Computed example of a mutant assay.
Amino acid sequence: MSSLAEWLAAFRQLHDKARKQHLTERERAVYLSGRDELARAVIAAQRLSTVVGQTPRQALRIARALQVDLDWSVGSERAMTLDLSVGGFGALLAKPPPSDEDLKFSLRIPGADPVAGRARVVDVKVQPGNARVCFAFVGLGAAELERLELFMFDALLTQLAG
């Protein structure tokens, strides 16, 4: 059996190949399984759980500050995310947007084009002076979801290396 360090080194090599879209079909299967394995370990460490039918990669959340521009019918705001998942993100806003409409978002990913689309407010926690708002992506395409997931695993691997 290999050590965790060896497993991470092998996973990192596959991740680098995935970023360059140079995986064979077999390597892609091993890589996706590795993503689930790493996500499962992080979810357990965070004491989170998955919903029935949800893969560990879908349940994974990372704490990451990214600039996000939000536009809705009666306003707009530039904010920083608090956390990110392939399902959505959380951010602190001066005040929450309307919860009865989808809004446009543009999420800036370092070194890449922004991920843009529509999001829906799914939770609001009003605090003194601001509100923590959780958004769920609406209809985000497979290519955009893959870009987000690659970014999330980049961030995880960087944290584990440090």
Results as ranks from 00 to 15, higher is better:
S2M: 12
E6V: 02
W7V: 00
L8F: 09
A10G: 14
F11R: 02
Q13H: 11
H15R: 03
A18M: 06
K20P: 02
Q21F: 08
Q21Y: 07
H22E: 15
L23H: 08
L23K: 04
T24R: 09
E25C: 00
E27R: 02
A29W: 09
V30H: 14
L32V: 01
S33M: 09
R35D: 02
R35G: 06
D36W: 05
D36V: 00
E37L: 08
L38N: 04
A39N: 03
A39Y: 03
A39D: 05
R40T: 01
A45C: 03
R47W: 08
L48D: 13
V52Y: 15
G53L: 07
P56W: 09
A59W: 05
R64Q: 11
A65L: 07
A65C: 06
A65D: 12
A65H: 12
A65P: 10
Q67E: 15
V68P: 05
V68M: 08
D69A: 11
D71Y: 10
V74E: 15
G75A: 05
S76N: 13
E77D: 13
R78W: 05
R78F: 03
M80F: 14
T81P: 12
L82V: 02
L82Y: 05
D83F: 01
D83C: 02
S85L: 01
S85V: 00
V86F: 04
V86L: 12
G87W: 09
L92D: 10
L92S: 06
L93E: 07
L93H: 06
P98S: 06
S99H: 11
S99K: 09
E101P: 09
D102V: 01
S106V: 00
S106I: 00
A112N: 11
D113F: 13
P114V: 00
P114C: 08
R118H: 14
R120M: 07
V121C: 14
V121M: 14
K125D: 14
Q127L: 15
N130A: 13
A131Q: 06
A131H: 08
R132C: 03
C134Y: 07
C134E: 10
F135H: 04
A136Q: 14
F137M: 05
V138I: 14
V138K: 15
G139L: 06
L140D: 03
A142T: 06
A142N: 10
A143W: 10
E144F: 05
L145P: 03
L145I: 06
R147T: 07
E149S: 14
E149A: 08
L150D: 07
F151Q: 02
M152Q: 09
D154A: 03
A155G: 01
A155E: 15
L156W: 07
L157Q: 06
T158A: 15
L160A: 04
